[in-house]
């Protein structure tokens, strides 16, 4: 194997474009490459890669490995892994970055095991140690109650980055980069699982991950009905509805609304929590929110340690006054 060099980003395609989490990875990779003095490459897998390849270059990639293959048109973990393993062995990067996204959750650890190396999982911040040039990752552990600083002992060093932990760089259409096609040989029988059907839970209105305002409800709401009030408020604010795991586990709202460590990571400008206690595992999904508002009847609730504005009181009464005033302010 050649000497390990450079940073390789494992890109993801959403629709026909590069995913927003891949743009975030490119921003993180550029920081590393600046201190390393080495290139940023990105791996793209699929069957039509021209558009995302150009996007990748304008957002920070020096080199695109376009792994074009009809079998890669749709995501399949086993086939993607086979392609990525081949590419990583061939390209021999010093560092591999991927998103702790839905795909990254299964590809990251499996790829690390295939390469026989360690993976710094779910990292919030990565940097090079100035002395050793080793990749250091800060990763929340114990549900966010603690942060571990870890490094990888083997090469390539791998880190999975939590979605939204980094801001993408602004696109620069003048940036230059090389697009290299990387042919792979895939055996269809490598795919050991088969998707039989997909069931989508209808998400009306603004997407939770993209909403500027999110109104989230917790166990203290006491049932499914109050989520209608949250929904009405979210509509007034042009936002989306989120929930704690306790509300999801109670069956009051579908799992796709869950915010947190094992739910969605969101970074709205305004995050309004209603009857949520603010457990670290919940906050793990919303710590990137610009302003957090807490409505809770318990003045001692942890959420008040995380919030910028707080109201202590019964959610129903507080929310009635709040929604009325919002209606006047936004429609009056």
């Amino acid at each position: 194997m050649a000497e390990a060099k450079g940073v390789l980003v494992l890109g993801e395609i959403a629709g026909a474009e590069l995913s927003s989490s891949s743009l975030e990875l490119l921003a993180a990779a550029r920081k590393l490459s600046a201190s390393l003095g080495e290139e940023v490459a990105i791996a793209l897998l699929g069957d039509t890669l021209d558009v995302p390849a150009k996007t990748a270059i304008s957002h920070g990639a020096d080199q695109v490995y376009a792994v074009n293959h009809p079998q890669l048109r749709q995501y399949h973990p086993d086939l993607f892994l086979a392609a990525l393993e081949t590419l990583c062995r061939e390209a021999s990067p010093r560092i591999i970055l991927m998103s702790r996204s839905n795909q990254g959750r299964e590809l990251g650890p499996r790829l690390a095991f295939r390469l026989g190396v360690g993976l710094a999982q779910d990292s919030l911040e990565i940097a090079l140690d100035p002395a050793t040039k080793k990749l250091m990752a800060n990763r929340p552990v114990y549900g966010g109650n603690a942060v571990a600083v870890v490094s990888c002992n083997a090469t390539p060093q791998m880190a999975a980055i939590r979605p939204k932990a980094y801001e993408p760089l602004a696109a620069d259409a003048a940036r230059q980069g090389k697009i290299t096609s990387f042919p792979v040989d895939l055996k269809p029988e490598a795919a050991r699982s088969r998707v039989v059907s997909v069931v989508k839970e209808e998400a009306k209105g603004v997407k939770l991950e993209e909403a500027r305002v999110v109104v989230s409800g917790g166990r203290g709401l006491g049932g499914p009905e109050p989520f209608k009030n949250l929904d009405a408020l979210a509509k007034l604010l042009g936002g989306a509805v989120g929930a704690s795991r306790a509300a999801v586990d109670s069956g009051w709202i579908p799992a796709s609304h869950q915010v947190g460590l094992t739910g969605k990571s969101i970074t709205p400008d305004l995050y309004i929590t209603v009857a949520i206690s603010g457990a670290s595992q919940h906050m793990a999904g919303c710590s990137g929110a610009k302003v957090i508002v807490a409505i809770n009847k318990d003045a001692e609730a942890n959420i008040f340690k995380e919030a910028r504005y707080g109201v202590v009181g019964d959610w129903q009464k507080v929310l009635t006054g709040f929604t009325e005033a919002v209606r006047e302010l936004t429609q009056g």
Binding site: L119, A146, V150
Partner: peptide, 10 residues
């Protein structure tokens, strides 16, 4: 495969 350098409460 991983070295833990530090563990702290944020």
């Amino acid at each position: 495969r991983i070295t833990l350098h530090n563990l702290f409460v944020p």
